[in-house]
């Protein structure tokens, strides 16, 4: 078990694994996501209340789902960085933070687009929207801190501390925002809550969430590979790799 653990710490070993894994992740992700999206956007039944406009759910929910779980993944990797100083863990955090930021933005944007026909407004200070906005700030802070520190080892560890502080705060922020919202206006937007949907809607939704996860895996591998090449550019194996690629 420990051998596996040490191997996982080696960027070179990961580079090889990522190369083998990526085609599968890409193909699987594209197929599953396309299946989910086509099924959801074209064939799933209309919503009795919202008509066709609800179909943005097949993009909105996967993006929001992933945006939240990426932060949790970052927190787990942050613990690994701080406790075991594993190189790959901070490569992982650095590689996926911008992905998380983009997906959070995407979920806010699709939410706004969905809100316009449904609620008649682009934005409401609803608890869920606000906590996603704060998540966007948390991602932005982590990325800004990472960019501000020149030494990559200190940057990784500082970001790890920040991400951990953030993850302790996420439940507090979530509950306080929920509480704040219910204080000021009673929940008017029952539509934001997940409707108990029929199978024909639920299965394509599940497929698109799964597909986006696989694609995220591919993207994370790609970004981690780039970061590894940058960091290990002075090592022998990277030189050999680049020289072999040049021929």
């Amino acid at each position: 078990m420990w051998q596996w653990f040490h191997k996982l710490g080696s960027p070179k070993w990961f580079y090889g694994i990522a190369n083998r894994l990526m085609p599968w992740l890409l193909a699987g992700g594209l197929i599953v996501l396309l299946a989910g999206l086509v099924w959801g956007l074209a064939f799933a039944p209309k919503d009795y209340l919202q008509g066709n406009s609800y179909r943005i759910i097949f993009i909105h929910v996967p993006a929001a789902f992933l945006a939240q779980s990426i932060y949790i993944m970052m927190a787990v990797a942050a613990v690994v960085t701080l406790v075991w100083r594993m190189k790959l863990a901070d490569v992982f955090v650095k590689a996926i933070a911008p992905v998380g930021l983009v997906l959070t933005f995407l979920s806010l944007f699709t939410g706004a687009v969905w809100g316009k026909p449904t609620w008649g407004t682009w934005w409401v200070w609803d608890a869920r929207l606000t906590s996603m906005l704060i998540l966007l700030f948390l991602y932005g802070g982590a990325i800004a801190l990472d960019r501000a520190i020149n030494d990559e080892k200190s940057a990784a560890r500082a970001v790890a501390v920040l991400v951990l502080v953030g993850v302790v705060n996420i439940p507090i922020i979530k509950y306080s925002v929920d509480w704040w919202n219910t204080l000021h206006q009673p929940a008017t937007f029952k539509l934001t809550e997940k409707p108990s949907m029929p199978m024909e809607m639920w299965v394509p939704l599940l497929l698109s969430v799964l597909g986006l996860y696989l694609l995220f895996g591919w993207l994370a591998c790609l970004r981690m590979k780039t970061e590894i090449l940058l960091r290990e550019q002075r090592t022998r194996w990277v030189r050999e790799l680049v020289l072999a690629g040049r021929k």
């Binding site: 700030f137 920040l162 705060n169 922020i173 306080s176 509480w179």
Partner: peptide, 29 residues
């Protein structure tokens, strides 16, 4: 976290304001 960085002031605000939100909500609430 931001000690010794070039744009420490602005960065500090970016990092800390999201974490201040619960205190603000309950304070004013």
């Amino acid at each position: 976290l931001t000690l010794g960085l070039r744009s420490a002031g602005v960065l500090l605000s970016l990092l800390i304001i999201p974490l201040y939100i619960p205190v603000l909500i309950f304070g004013t609430g």
